[in-house]
Design a protein around this nucleic acid. Structure first.
Length: 488
RNA sequence: GGCGCUAUCGUCUAGGGGUUAGGACGUGAGAUUCUCAAUCUUAAAACCCGGGUUCGAUUCCCGGUAGCGCUACCA
């Protein structure tokens, strides 16, 4: 049984990104699943920066990871930096070596494994190094010859390594199929495998929830925990997020669509983004898709995690999965108007539009059902905030069915008269404009289009009366007057 | 190449020895409406292939195929 009953003790999980770029959607999802597990079972969430790769790590990357996590608005309880724990890693490597479970490999880096190939099993270790006597090994080390420290994986004993994965179930592999992997590089730095396991052991991590790309690495990790004399934690691997072509999502191949900041900047709500990511590879199994964070926390279990990779369905034209968009629209509609308004504010500011909070508060209800992304609010509502309407095609003032320019002009001129005196609230406007339409012998749809285009500068817009009420008499009269000119 | 993992509509998924194989997104049609959106109705759309086990397999087993992962002194 995969661990449905996560032990009596409170779980400790960790998210351990290596800071080599911006926060990737796949990493974000891994963080989220760990966080959900921790919150669901009232455990501890540990954030550990796995920054042992000095070459590729950067402080900028650390910052952008924090930035992404902050946006997601998910917290963690403890924080560590792997690079500050170097001494422990080396000390443990030394201990493993002292136990005879590892050996020094003096083969120069890169010299080995040049040709992939060949003789079965040859790849398992660099010939000669495993059998080096302790004396010769010590002598060469003392002489300053650089070496990597490799795990001495048991050979020819038919030993089978096994564990029960929280998602994938029973897993096993022959030790003979595992290569003598490195623990320490020739520069003395720990490898990922070593540092990660030593830290997981030292930080008492109880559940390692990570991407499926580590499933096979787990056998090595089992060996390391054993060498450390520690009970291994529970493992649970998550199916990977892949591109429509099936390839693992990568920054290099797929560009900004894999960065969480892309979602943020386009106007995703963090709760919608999390909702979407959760549904990729996990299901509450009750046909519900729109979920709040709290609902996800209560519904979350490892049993609900699927085993097949999930496609993020983006295209060249649209970087966002249609389902992500739909969920975002749903979450936008679920937001209280005041809250949505303040989230919208920065998008208008960025577009250089002067949207006062009061006015935006009035506009928000008119567009909230019409946008899938916060960023779309600007193009949906810009005409509320500009002094001069952007130029539009005057023929749009003429209703497509059964209308001509003369008729449109008649409508607008009559509207001008009516609007001069009517009170500018929804009900009065509706009453007056409907009366105007029938006065001219027109159907509402025909009569309203010229007015809508005149006032909004486009055919598709929020409902007319509400819109005009927000715009106010002065602006409406001016714009309708201009439209009459256009038709002249 | 070796080893490991996976395989249900276009996509995300539910299900599971006997079902009309369910839901959602997207798509088509229609309804409603002052346009758009929203909403409602409706349609098309799937169990990778081959063997076995079985009265009966999409479901269990084996093989194949395909995809993905690991196979670094990257993480």
């Amino acid at each position: 049984m995969p661990d449905s009953t996560p032990s009596q003790k409170t779980p400790r999980v960790r998210f351990a990104p290596s800071p080599t770029g911006y926060l990737h959607v796949g990493s974000a999802r891994t963080f989220i699943f760990n966080w959900l597990y921790a919150r669901r079972y009232r455990g501890t969430m540990v954030l550990r920066l796995d920054d042992t790769d000095v070459e590729r790590n950067s402080e900028a990357s650390v910052q952008s990871i924090f930035e992404g996590l902050r946006w997601l608005d998910l917290d963690w309880d403890e924080e560590y930096k792997q690079s500050e724990r170097l001494a422990l890693h080396r000390q443990q490597a030394e201990a493993i070596f002292a136990k005879g479970l590892a050996y020094r490999d003096f083969t120069p880096a890169h010299a080995a494994g040049e040709e992939q190939s060949s003789a079965q099993g040859a790849w398992l270790f660099n010939p000669g190094m495993r059998e080096l006597s302790r004396e010769e090994s010590d002598r060469r080390a003392a002489a300053g010859e650089p070496f990597a420290l490799r795990y001495r994986v048991p050979r020819g004993q038919d030993q089978s390594l096994r564990f029960v994965d929280g998602v994938y179930g029973e897993q096993s592999k022959l030790a003979d199929e595992v290569e003598d992997f490195a623990l320490l590089r020739s520069d003395g730095m720990p490898t990922y495998h070593l540092a990660s396991c030593v830290d997981d052991a030292d930080l008492a991590i109880s559940h390692i929830i990570r991407g499926q790309d580590h499933l096979t690495n787990t056998f090595k990790h089992l060996l390391i925990f054993e060498a450390l004399g520690m009970e291994p934690p529970q493992f649970a691997h998550l199916p990977l997020l892949v591109a429509p072509d099936g390839a693992k999502l990568s920054k290099r191949k797929h560009g900004p669509v894999v960065s969480v900041t892309t979602y943020r900047d386009a106007g995703f709500l963090p709760q919608a983004f999390i909702n979407f990511l959760c549904l990729l590879g996990w299901s509450p199994k009750n046909d519900r898709e729109f979920l709040t964070i709290d609902e996800i926390v209560t519904a979350f279990t490892l049993e609900g995690v699927n085993r097949a990779n999930a496609v993020v369905n983006f295209t060249e034209d649209d970087p966002f999965d249609p389902k992500a968009l739909w969920l975002n629209a749903e979450h936008i509609r679920a937001l209280p108007v005041a809250e949505l308004t303040s989230l919208l504010q920065p998008f208008f500011a960025a577009a250089g539009l002067e949207a006062t909070p009061e006015k935006l508060l009035a506009v928000t209800p008119l567009i909230r059902e019409r946008i899938k992304l916060l960023g779309e609010a600007v193009s949906a509502a810009d005409f509320f905030f500009v002094k001069e309407l952007a130029p539009y095609d005057p023929t749009e003032l003429v209703p497509q069915k059964g209308g001509d320019a003369a008729m449109a002009r008649r409508v607008l001129q009559h509207a001008l008269e009516v609007l001069a005196t009517v009170s500018f609230d929804h009900d009065s406007l509706e009453q007056a404009l409907r009366a105007a339409a029938s006065h001219l012998g027109l159907k509402a749809g025909q009569a309203f289009q010229p007015i809508r285009v005149a006032v909004c500068g486009r055919k598709n817009a929020p409902p007319l009366f509400e819109t005009m009420a927000v715009l106010g008499r002065e602006v409406c009269l001016t714009r309708i007057g201009q439209a009459v000119q256009f038709l002249a």
